[in-house]
Design a protein around this nucleic acid. Structure first.
Length: 588
RNA sequence: GCCAACGUAGCUCAGCUGGCAGAGCAGCGCAUUCGUAAUGCGCUGGUCGUCGGUUCGAAUCCGACCGUUGGCUCCA
C-alpha cells in the first residue's frame, strides 16, 4: 500500500511477530508454531492450535504482547548444531518447525532466538530487545495452508501491524479506513453502479444504468483510440466446438477454468474462456501477404472462466468478464515497433484515466517452453527494449513466463498509492503453430507470423472497479453518469427547470432534475452524496435572468452563469478529461 | 476448493442466558414553496438466507446447503 518499508522497520515487525507468537503461547495451550515474517504492511504468524482464534481473542493477545514488550526481554541469539536443534524441536513437539529445520540448507548456521521464556527457530535478525517494538495492532485472522500447499493442513494465520511511532500506526489505520470508504462494492451499491444477484449466481455482474453509462463512455473512448492506433474491430461468438479447443490446447491446459460443455446437435460446444481461437479463425479465413501485416484485431470480448467460489471478489474477481482484447499478427522485423507502440498506447490510455505512475514485470522463458529459442530471445529483447525506451521501471521474473511466450505485465498506482496490474503484453508461440497460421513472404513462401496477445485495461469489470476506487466514486465530468443536476429552489420554477434541462440535454450533457419536495439544502446534500459533478440551482432570480447558480461538488458555489457559459465550461472540462481526484469536499 | 467469521425491512444496524420482530435512513402520503450538505407529521415495508432437527415454544440452540467477507491457492 505504501512505499517499501525500511529494513529496520521489517526487523522490528518480525520481532513483533515473535512477540505475538510468545503471547499466543501464553494465552493458549498446545500451540504449534510455523513462521512469522514481516510483510509490506505489517506481519503475520502461522499457528496450529486446538483453540480457534477469533477477533474476540485479540484483546487478550494484545495485552500479553504489551506485557512482553514492557518487560523488555532481550532477543538472545542461540546457534545450535542441526542435531541439537532437532532434539530441541522434537521434545517441544514442534512438527512444523522440524520440517522448516529440514529445509535449511546444509552449511547454513542454525539459529534460535529467545526472548524471555519463548524460544523459536529463526534466521533473525531481531531488535535488541522487545522494548524496541513500536506501537502495534492485530488486524485479522485467516486460514492458510502450511507452505501454501492445498494438500497440506490449514494453519491459523494472525495478521498484525507495527510502526515506529503511534502517529504512523494511526496513519496506516486511517488509510485502511479510507480504502474501506472507497471499496467499489460499497460505492457500487450506494451509487447504483452494479450488483451481483444471488438469483443469477456468484461472480456474474449486472451493470445498472449508472455503471453501464460509465462503461459505455469507457468503451466509446477505447474504440476511438483503437481506430487511431490502427486496430480493426472484430466480433466473435461466445461458444465454439470442442474440436476448436482441442486444437488450441485449452482442453489440455485450461480445462479446469472452463465450464462443462453443452451438446448441440450431438456435438460438444464450450463457452469461451478466451477470444484468441476466434480471432485466429478470422485471420485464417484467407491468405495474408507480408505487405498487409501487421494485422491488429481488437474486440471487447466477453469470456467465462470457472473461479473457485472462495476467490470471487466484487468486480475484481468474477466468472464472466469482458476483456479489452487484441491480437497483433506481424512479421519478425515488425515485432519491436509493435511492442513499443502497445506500451505507448497503454500509457496514453491510463493517462486519460488519471493513472500516471507505471511499473512493469517482465517474465522470461521457463524450463518447459514451446517455440524456437531464437524467437524467444528476439521477443524478450523487444519487450525489454520497449520498457527501456519508455523508461518504465521493471522487475524481471527469470523463467516465470508462460510456456508459450514471454510477457510484460504493467502495473499502475491509484490515487491512494495502491498498485494494480492492468495491462498485459504476451507473445504466443504456441497458437500460431497449432493453428498453422502463415503469411506469404516476399519469397512467395509461407512463413510463421508472430502473434502478440494484449489487453490494456485488462477486463472492463475489473478496470471499472479500480476506477471506482481510484476516483472514490466521484467520476470526472467526462465519465460521470450524471454530469449536472438541476435543483429547483421551489416548484414555482418547475417550468424553467425543465427548459434548462432541455437545453443542456440538447447540448448532449447528461442532466436530470431533482423533482423531490425537499428544501434546497437537502437537494444539494443528496447531489453531493450522489457525487454529481455540477449542480445548477434555479430559483425565481435565475428564472428572471435566464441563468443558473452553478455549484461544483468539490469547489462549492460558483455563482451565476448563463446557459451558454455553462455549456462552454462543461465542454472544456470534458475535452480536458479533467479529474478532480479526491472526490468531494469534506463534509462541513 | 480449504480455514474462519458473518447473513434480521431497499440500505446501515439493535434485538441479553429460547417467550408477541425494532430503530435510523430510503420509499409513499399530507402539510410546507423554501436560496447552497438533512422541513414537519403520518404510513407502508420482514416466511429473521434456505431446508431440516431439538423444544410446549426458535431470529436466538444443533446440522446441512446457499451466499457474503477476510485470507490460503489462483488470477483479467
Amino acid at each position: 500500500m505504501n512505499a517499501k518499508p525500511s529494513s529496520e522497520l521489517l526487523t522490528m515487525r518480525h520481532s513483533a511477530a515473535h512477540v505475538m507468537a510468545a503471547a499466543v503461547c501464553q494465552v493458549f495451550d498446545r500451540v504449534l508454531l510455523d513462521i512469522g515474517p514481516a510483510t509490506e504492511d505489517g506481519f503475520y504468524y502461522d499457528f496450529d492450535l486446538p483453540h480457534r482464534i477469533g477477533p474476540e481473542d485479540f484483546p487478550a493477545i494484545e495485552a500479553a504482547m504489551a506485557r512482553i514488550i514492557a518487560e523488555d526481554h532481550p532477543f538472545e541469539r542461540i546457534e545450535m548444531s542441526r542435531e541439537e536443534a532437532h532434539r530441541w524441536l522434537e521434545t517441544a513437539g514442534q512438527k512444523y518447525k522440524l520440517e522448516r529445520l529440514a529445509e535449511i540448507p546444509e552449511g547454513e548456521p542454525i539459529t534460535f532466538y529467545r526472548c524471555g521464556p519463548f524460544m523459536d527457530l529463526c534466521r533473525g535478525p531481531h531488535v535488541p530487545s522487545t522494548g524496541h517494538i513500536g506501537p502495534f495492532k492485530l488486524l485479522s485472522v485467516a486460514g492458510s495452508y502450511f507452505h501454501g500447499l492445498e494438500t497440506n493442513p490449514m494453519l491459523q494465520r494472525v495478521y498484525g501491524t507495527a510502526f515506529a511511532t503511534q502517529e504512523e500506526l494511526n496513519r496506516y489505520l486511517r488509510q485502511l479506513e479510507e480504502a474501506r470508504q472507497r471499496d467499489h462494492r460499497k460505492l457500487g451499491r450506494e451509487l447504483e453502479l452494479f450488483s451481483i444477484e444471488e438469483a443469477v449466481g456468484p461472480g456474474l455482474i449486472h451493470w445498472h444504468p449508472s455503471g453501464a453509462m460509465v462503461r459505455y463512455l469507457i468503451e466509446e473512448f477505447w474504440r476511438r483510440e483503437h481506430v487511431r492506433a490502427g486496430y480493426q474491430f472484430v466480433f466473435t461468438p461466445h461458444i465454439g466446438r470442442a474440436e476448436l479447443w482441442a486444437i488450441s490446447g485449452h482442453l489440455d491446459f485450461y480445462r479446469e477454468s472452463m465450464y462443462a460443455p453443452m451438446k448441440i446437435d450431438e456435438r460438444e460446444y464450450f463457452i469461451k474462456p478466451m477470444n484468441c481461437p476466434f480471432h485466429i479463425q478470422i485471420y485464417k479465413s484467407r491468405r495474408h501477404s507480408y505487405r498487409e501485416l501487421p494485422v491488429r484485431f481488437a474486440e471487447l470480448g466477453t469470456v467465462y472462466r470457472y473461479e473457485k467460489d472462495g476467490v470471487l471478489h466484487g468486480l475484481f474477481r468474477v466468472r464472466g468478464f469482458t476483456q479489452d482484447d487484441a491480437h497483433i499478427i506481424c512479421t519478425p522485423d515488425q515485432v519491436e515497433a509493435e511492442i513499443l507502440a502497445v506500451i505507448r498506447f497503454a500509457r496514453s490510455m491510463w493517462d486519460a484515466f488519471g493513472f500516471r505512475e507505471i511499473s512493469a514485470y517482465l517474465s522470461t522463458r521457463p524450463e518447459k517452453a514451446v517455440g524456437d529459442p531464437a524467437r524467444w530471445e528476439q521477443a524478450t529483447a523487444a519487450l525489454e527494449q520497449a520498457l527501456r525506451t519508455e523508461q518504465i521501471p521493471y522487475d524481471t521474473d527469470v523463467g516465470g513466463g508462460a510456456f508459450y511466450g514471454p510477457k510484460i505485465d504493467l502495473k499502475v498506482r491509484d490515487a491512494i498509492g495502491r498498485e494494480w496490474q492492468m495491462s498485459t503484453v504476451q507473445f504466443d508461440f504456441n497458437l500460431p503453430e497449432r493453428f498453422d497460421m502463415t503469411y506469404i513472404g516476399p519469397d512467395g513462401a509461407p512463413h510463421r507470423p508472430y502473434m502478440i496477445h494484449r489487453a490494456l485495461l485488462g477486463s472492463l469489470e475489473r478496470f471499472f472497479g479500480i476506477l471506482v476506487e481510484h476516483y472514490a466514486g466521484a467520476f470526472p465530468l467526462w465519465l460521470a453518469p450524471e454530469q449536472i443536476r438541476i435543483l429547483p429552489v421551489s416548484d414555482r420554477v418547475e417550468e424553467y427547470a425543465r427548459s434548462v434541462r432541455d437545453r443542456l440535454r440538447a447540448a448532449e450533457f447528461r442532466v436530470t432534475i431533482d423533482q423531490s419536495a425537499d428544501k434546497i439544502g437537502a437537494k444539494i446534500r443528496r447531489a453531493q452524496t450522489d457525487k454529481v459533478p455540477y449542480m445548477a440551482i434555479v430559483g425565481l432570480r435565475e428564472a428572471a435572468s435566464d441563468t443558473v447558480a452553478l455549484r461544483h461538488r468539490r469547489r462549492g458555489d460558483l455563482g451565476a452563469f448563463s446557459l451558454a457559459e455553462v455549456e462552454q465550461l462543461l465542454r472544456d472540462e470534458v475535452a480536458r478529461r479533467a479529474s478532480d481526484r479526491n472526490g468531494d469536499s469534506p463534509k462541513p
